[in-house]
């Protein structure tokens, strides 16, 4: 692990105007994340974690404060610049996978590269194949998204998040739609990626999942109430092994 800072938030505030009222979603949040960290951001609904996620993912800009992603200031960027930075620097994993329907795994994974003119067809193909191999789906390259299980679909989504070699992987309740067993499998995959040196932010409302990450940030009412390193990272593999064997 090195000291390269991937994310630096400086007193980020985000207000929404809802009718007459101003909603203070984030009331001054500051933290930084170094390369290779596996951070969980937790909070109940209404704590501002979705707003924070949108800001971290460059989908939204703060009302006040500055956000540096890979040392690039994002707050003042326009829509198109943010699109480009999302395409080059961030990999998204969503709760509901968001794969294109009736489309093969390979084509789904290629998608981010299609929006990057630097890659030609052959390179896209190879990178997508490699990403799918990395998530253990090398035998499912040409399966269509609707022919796959939830766990497989989420793996495709993870491969899609990896394919552009992002500096940051943003997972939004990535295990939320999966059963316990599959959820552990996905967590194992994320822990492997972490071991390989990837920077991952895992946003969840489920405090149990915090045990698997290297650092825990807890939000409440738009402020950080806890930010600490996790000394005892639980192994998802062990947890999976400890589950009673499925009989089928």
């Amino acid at each position: 692990m090195n000291d390269r800072s991937i994310i630096r938030l400086e007193n980020i505030k985000r207000y929404f105007q809802v009718g007459e009222e101003t909603v203070h979603a984030l009331r001054g949040v500051s933290f930084s994340i170094k390369e290779g960290e596996f951070v969980s951001i937790m909070g109940a609904s209404g704590s501002g974690k979705s707003t924070l996620l949108n800001l971290l993912g460059c989908l939204d800009t703060p009302t006040e404060g500055e956000y540096f992603l890979d040392n690039i200031p994002v707050s003042s960027m326009g829509k198109n610049e943010r699109s480009t930075i999302r395409n080059r620097k961030i990999g998204f994993i969503f709760q509901s996978y968001n794969l294109l329907p009736k489309t093969t795994a390979l084509e789904n994974v290629e998608l981010p590269l299609l929006y990057n003119p630097a890659f030609n067809m052959k390179e896209r193909h190879e990178k997508a194949k490699k990403a799918l191999e990395a998530v253990g789906l090398s035998d499912r390259l040409n399966h269509k998204s609707n022919q796959m299980s939830g766990g497989q679909q989420q793996r495709v989504a993870i491969a899609r998040a990896l394919v552009n070699d992002p500096v940051l992987i943003l997972a939004d309740e990535a295990t939320g739609n999966l059963d316990t067993r599959t959820a552990f499998e996905i967590m194992i995959l994320l822990q492997e990626l972490h071991r390989d040196g990837r920077t991952i932010i895992f946003v969840t409302h489920n405090p149990e999942l915090a045990a698997f990450t290297s650092r825990n940030i807890v939000l409440r009412d738009g402020k950080i109430i806890k930010d600490g390193l996790n000394e005892h990272i639980e192994s998802a593999q062990k947890m999976l092994d400890s589950l009673p064997k499925q009989e089928d």
């Binding site: 198109n80 699109s83 999302r86 294109l100 998608l111």
Partner: peptide, 16 residues
Amino acid sequence: TREIGLRMSIGAKGRD
């Protein structure tokens, strides 16, 4: 709509 949202979040610009 969701497909469009996904495309945008992985880097598609409005004009794309």
